[in-house]
Write a protein that binds this DNA or RNA. Structure first.
Length: 104
DNA sequence: CTCGTGACTCCCG
DNA sequence: TCGGGAGCCACGA
């Protein structure tokens, strides 16, 4: 089981209306410092595995992508799932952060 | 095998 | 408080 596979499983475990940070996914996958690998996983498998890449945001609960890069798409997808963006285009992690270990 | 890369994160200035 | 730089890890060429 590689980090990529674990990350893949973790990301797929994120339910609608919830989000996870790169760091959290990485940690859940076994590498607290592997946030960047999560990025890689999204890039490489989001398309093939049909991952909910839009449910992955940065540590601030914000979309890392820039306007015109996918930002609006991700935001739209999340809002469609019930995720609310704050006045600062930010997601309230206290409310929407998905924590795999705490749910089961 | 070594080098480069990346939708990150943290620490220091 | 804000900005810049280095660290990090795994994967593709």
């Amino acid at each position: 089981m590689t980090f990529t596979e674990k990350a893949l499983a973790v990301i797929q475990s994120i339910p609608e209306g919830k989000v996870m940070t790169y760091g959290s996914v990485a940690a859940a996958a076994g590498s607290p410092r592997g946030a960047r690998q999560v990025v890689r996983v999204l890039h490489s498998l989001s398309d093939k595995e049909g991952l909910p890449w839009h449910r992955v945001v940065n540590r601030e609960g914000r979309i890392s992508l820039e306007r015109g890069r996918g930002y609006e798409l991700q935001k739209a997808l999340l809002e469609d799932e019930g995720v609310v963006f704050g006045l600062t285009e930010r997601i309230d992690l206290d409310t929407y952060l998905w924590q795999p270990s705490t749910s089961a």
